[in-house]
Design a protein around this nucleic acid. Structure first.
Lengths: 157, 157
DNA sequence: CAAATATAGTGGCATATACCAGTAAATTCC
DNA sequence: GGAATTTACTGGTATATGCCACTATATTTG
């Protein structure tokens, strides 16, 4: 009981993930070269491209991000004319997120840079472990995980 | 080559880690109960306690965090009298980070809450996979990893 | 030892991200 | 169909985190 000798990283999954995300944020941003686009922004516009004009709500859910956080994160991209918000036809509350031509262009340009950053990652960790890690993290980010996590607290809480 | 059909989460380790960290930030903060202390702050003061009065530089390194980012992050904790900065005796440039009595108290109080949050995590992912994940993430956060990552770019770049 | 350089921190600015309190539009319920 | 509720988003505030420029102190060098 007096021990708890080890660093928190050895025991806390949340802190471990967070710390790794700081390291990778740095490494990927460096590897992707001097672009005005951050790694976070690249993954965001890539997700927008993938979802093809999602509402903010849909995009936030895919990103596992708070809706208002997403709104704030979009602002610099809108300011720089990479993204625009267009009101939904049917639901006038909703606004769809769309890449501008410039946004599509920048996204496409960055793909090769991202691939290089990811190639390095795979080279260091190994393609197998890399893929396995992404699967595990995708599960952790899933709704199923969140539900199971909530359920695991029902009794002990 | 035209494909790239899958979502970015399936291919980008950095984005995957980041997205999982958002989810876990939420889940842990919820599970740790209504405290004025965030999960990030708990892990920070726990690391301070572990290192026993580190300099900001040392602490930043352990956290894999930018020195100035650390400085900013410490401010609310100093304001709330959980942490204090004391000039180092020998090197007057350096300031050591020390928990106040109140800080030690709050840290100790939160340990049980954190354990519950972590217990849930292990329950959902499985203790084995959980431990394995933390090992992988600790490697990713290590200097060895950063060096190997840099080296992996030397040729292709 | 004095000048040049390196190190530790600070402050300003920018993005990332969350919570909460609105606002407006849609949906549900008498 | 109009009131109550829910949903989608906005804006404000706070923490999280990084970069850069600057300051103060230490270390290295000639």
């Amino acid at each position: 009981m007096e021990k708890q000798e080890d660093s928190i990283w050895a025991h806390c999954s949340s802190s471990s993930v967070r710390r790794a995300s700081r390291q990778l944020g740095q490494l990927y941003d460096d590897a992707m070269g001097p672009s005005d686009l951050r790694g976070t922004q690249f993954s965001l516009i890539t997700q927008i491209a993938y979802l093809k004009e999602p509402t903010q709500k849909e995009l936030a859910k895919a990103m596992v991000m708070d809706l208002s956080a997403l709104g704030h994160t979009l602002k610099p991209l809108i300011r720089d004319d990479l993204v625009e918000l267009v009101p939904d036809e049917k639901d006038r509350r909703a606004k769809r997120v769309r890449l501008t031509p410039r946004g599509r262009e920048r996204q496409a340009e960055m793909v090769a840079n991202w691939q290089e950053a990811q190639r390095r990652f795979d080279a260091v960790l190994g393609a197998e472990k890399s893929a396995e890690l992404r699967r595990t993290l995708a599960f952790i980010a899933s709704e199923d995980f969140a539900k199971a996590y909530a359920a695991a607290g029902k009794k002990g809480d």
